[in-house]
């Protein structure tokens, strides 16, 4: 237990490569400067947050919803729809009845 805490603590600082991978997942371009700055900012935050490792959470259920209740369920009824013309007016690019994006099938994207 103690060893794993030490190991994790040693790994806490985020390397610039980790920042780049994370930024790619989050679809954010970062300049080289931003990568460096983010790495140091996030490392500081994570170092501070390493205090969490001190808490004994054995057997503690995580809280996702602060006020525990079950989900309500909706009747299967069709409700109001949005006006497409209005929606398309707010879209960056549209054509006929469609929203438009740069062509999907190229390199580098998930499918």
């Amino acid at each position: 237990m103690a060893r794993s805490i030490e190991n994790s603590a040693a790994q806490l600082a985020i390397a610039p490569d980790e920042v780049r991978t994370t930024a790619e997942l989050a679809r954010l371009y970062l300049s080289p400067d931003e990568v460096e700055r983010t790495a140091s900012e996030l490392s500081r935050i994570l170092e501070y947050a390493a205090t969490l490792k001190r808490v004994d959470v054995t057997g503690v259920e995580p809280t996702v919803h602060a006020v525990p209740q079950d989900s309500p369920l909706r009747d299967d009824v069709v409700g109001p729809h949005d006006d497409l013309a209005t929606a398309l007016r707010g879209a960056p690019l549209s054509q006929d009845r469609y929203f438009v994006v740069p062509a999907i099938f190229e390199t580098g994207d998930e499918g």
Partner: peptide, 27 residues
Amino acid sequence: GRSALFDMYCRTRAAYFGPEVKRRILL
């Protein structure tokens, strides 16, 4: 080396989110 789509995502979010928002998204 990126598709136009990937590029559009990354540029849009980099250009129009502010620094604090980006910091929190990354964290």
